[in-house]
């Protein structure tokens, strides 16, 4: 078994609203990423996956607050660390981040190289500008980006180029973990592929050791990450290898999510397209029982009352439902 790079145990974070209400957007989430492995997190928008991305970095600013659990990076628990210290030693350095809206992620009035200088000098003030330039040029060229991008302002770059610049900037310090939050969702299909290829390249070329890839398009994760976790209303509802979760989902929500998406990949196209009726529950007052019960086709009366824990199938997969695996599979067969 290879080394664990990032281990998250029962992490819970909350938003505190203006009216002092607590909203638990990430609820007891655990995960483990090993060296050289990647994990995908999928779910509808508003399920808490972007909040999970922010929470995983161990640095919180209002309205998001840490509640409980631990984040262990390379053997170091960062949840107990001083926030300024986290910012200085962990962010960008150990864990890095590709934001959802990469289009606006770069300061419009700053040249790319100036920003990279700021990033590097925030962690190591002694590096000279010349060294930074050499490093950045090398890194950009390694990732197939022209070096003259460094001397441009973000407004002078095209959408795809901006996205790739952001990716290259995010990994400039060769972080151990890279968290990518919907890095491709705003792009056209060609750029999407380019971005995904670039992120996979980062793993291959050893720039990053592990990857967490977040998206609302479950099928997109197929061929991209090793494992997939499906998230619903702040909780993980299913986890397994990419193949298994995409082609053989157990949880009714994963099943429904597969059906609700227009899939570009050949071979996935025959999956029936159905939208999931209803909306996710209000996390201000989450339901007592299963959070998906209200929208679940297979829900039973007790689903509303009994809260379920993740259960193990024995084959390295977990899911969160009181209905046994076999019964669910039978129900899916009857459906189609």
């Amino acid at each position: 078994m290879s080394k664990v790079i990032l281990e998250v145990n029962e992490l819970t974070t909350k938003y505190i609203t203006r009216f002092r209400e607590d909203i638990y957007a990430v609820d007891h989430v655990s995960l483990k990423v090993e060296d050289g492995k990647s994990i995908g997190i999928a779910g509808e928008s508003g399920c808490g996956k972007s909040t999970l991305a922010l929470s995983l970095m161990g640095y919180y600013f209002p309205p998001l607050h840490y509640s409980s659990g631990e984040i262990i990076v390379d053997g170091r628990n960062i949840t107990g660390m001083n926030p300024d210290n986290v910012r200085k030693t962990i962010l960008g350095n150990e864990i890095s981040y590709i934001p959802q809206a990469a289009m606006n992620a770069l300061n419009p009035t700053q040249k790319v190289i100036r920003f990279i200088e700021d990033v590097i000098q925030a962690h190591n003030p002694r590096v000279t500008r010349q060294e930074i330039y050499e490093l950045a040029r090398e890194r950009f060229e390694l990732l197939g980006l022209p070096a003259d991008v460094l001397q441009k302002y973000s407004v002078e770059l095209s959408g795809g180029m901006k996205q790739r610049t952001v990716i290259a900037t995010s990994v400039i310090l060769s972080p151990k973990v890279l968290i990518a939050d919907e890095p491709s969702s705003a792009l056209d299909v060609t750029s999407q592929k380019m971005v995904i290829k670039m992120i996979l390249d980062l793993m291959e070329k050893g720039i990053i050791k592990s990857l967490i890839f977040i998206t609302h398009e479950l099928p997109l994760l197929y061929n991209v990450t090793d494992d997939i976790m499906v998230m619903y209303a702040g909780q993980i509802v299913e986890r397994g290898s990419a193949d298994e979760v995409v082609f053989d989902p157990i949880h009714p929500y994963s099943k429904a999510l597969m059906g609700s998406i227009i899939v570009p990949e050949a071979g996935l196209r025959d999956v029936k397209l159905t939208a999931i009726p209803g909306t996710p529950p209000n996390l201000k007052n989450p339901p007592a029982g299963c959070r998906f019960a209200a929208r679940c086709k297979f829900a039973m009366p007790e689903c509303q009352a009994i809260s379920v824990n993740l259960r193990d199938t024995g084959g390295g997969r977990t899911y969160r439902c009181i209905i046994p695996e076999e019964d669910l599979r039978k129900a899916y067969e009857n459906e189609s």
Partner: peptide
Amino acid sequence: NADYVKYARFLGIKDRKIIQYVFRN
């Protein structure tokens, strides 16, 4: 509240530097 502020924070840049970006912009 702009995205670049959030991004710069998550790359570990100090608040003092970010404030410079913000006020210039």
